[in-house]
């Protein structure tokens, strides 16, 4: 153990701290900007919901799995040089993978709750997963190609000259849209929409409701932080210390995403799939092509 142990404990502490700050920021921003996901239901922390059809193990496993995914994703977000939970060599890919645990959580919790709305929530979130993963990956690929690395710290360091949003605005727009899909925010909140009574959120109470709220808030935070890393230069910036810049950028991106969500009509799952496969994926491929051309032309970090 020794140094490695201190590193692990420090990384875990940093991750949790970042997640707490992020969730608090998200809650505040939600209250300021837009009705929260599932705001139709008041947060019933003092009363649990009794479901006659609930599965004993899967139903509480849902929010735990979701929160695990968000926490594990927060581990690879660097808030400054060296200020990172765990600097994995494949950090960006790891991030995409562990965020999937939120979908798994909705599946487990929705099916386990056994109520009609919750099961419908599972159906819809699976369809939404199908619609966003490919364009989301393509939105990552642009930035990853320029940085020539999957490590989150090296992606940030590659933007020391110019941020990637300048070089690939198309990729940034793509990331905004797919990030909203991944965070289940306003135009793409069909799995948790009020048509199905909040979906899986309608079937929880007590600590499970709290965990769901925290993981959904934290999900928006980590998705926005990843966007800030990939396209806005992470902790880089003049005058202010690194973590402040990172938080500022993340916060601005969160505000932008929530504001965008208010501007557009909510899309159904079928419309989401159509948007994804007809527009976003070709746009992503085009972005990859453009970035390849830019790299060949010598633009960007060498």
């Amino acid at each position: 153990m020794g140094v490695a142990g201190i590193g692990i404990v420090g990384g875990a502490f940093l991750t949790l701290l970042a997640l707490c700050v992020g969730a608090a920021l998200t809650f505040w921003l939600e209250r300021a900007l837009t009705p929260a996901v599932g705001a139709a239901q008041p947060l019933t922390l003092d009363q649990d919901v009794q479901l006659g059809h609930a599965d004993r193990w899967m139903y509480p496993a849902g929010p735990i799995s979701a929160l695990f995914g968000v926490t594990a994703a927060a581990a690879v977000l660097p808030f400054g040089p060296g200020l990172i939970g765990a600097d994995l060599g494949i950090g960006a890919f790891y991030f995409i993978v562990v965020v999937d645990f939120v979908v798994l959580g909705v599946a487990l919790g929705g099916w386990g709750a056994g109520s009609r709305n919750a099961v419908e929530s599972f159906y819809r979130i699976t369809a939404q997963l199908v619609s966003y993963v490919v364009p989301l990956g393509l939105a990552y690929v642009g930035a990853l190609m320029m940085a020539a690395s999957l490590s989150t710290t090296r992606i940030v360091e590659a933007q020391s000259d110019v941020w990637f949003i300048v070089l690939q605005p198309l990729g940034f727009i793509l990331y905004l849209i797919t990030g909203l899909m991944q965070a289940y925010r306003a135009p793409f909140y069909e799995p948790l929409s009020e048509h199905i009574g909040g979906g899986v959120l309608s079937a929880v109470g007590g600590w499970k409701a709290l965990l769901w709220r925290v993981s959904l808030a934290g999900l928006l935070f980590v998705v926005a932080a990843m966007g800030a890393l990939l396209y806005l230069g992470g902790w880089l910036g003049p005058w202010l210390p690194g973590p402040v810049w990172m938080l500022l950028k993340t916060f601005a991106l969160m505000a932008l995403m929530l504001w965008l969500g208010r501007r557009f009509k909510p899309l159904s799952t079928a419309q989401m799939l159509s948007l994804s496969w007809r527009i976003l994926i070709p746009a992503g491929l085009l972005n990859v092509l453009i970035v390849g051309g830019l790299i060949l032309a010598g633009v960007g970090p060498q």
């Binding site: 790891y94 993978v97 999937d100 979908v103 798994l104 699976t126 997963l129 199908v130």
Partner: peptide, 24 residues
């Protein structure tokens, strides 16, 4: 072999959920 491990998780969470959906 962490890349393969993560690939496996990604494939099987996403793929398995879609498969479960079709099963249902």
């Amino acid at each position: 072999a962490d890349l393969i491990g993560l690939l496996q998780i990604m494939m099987y969470i996403g793929g398995m959920l879609v498969m479960i959906l079709f099963m249902l």
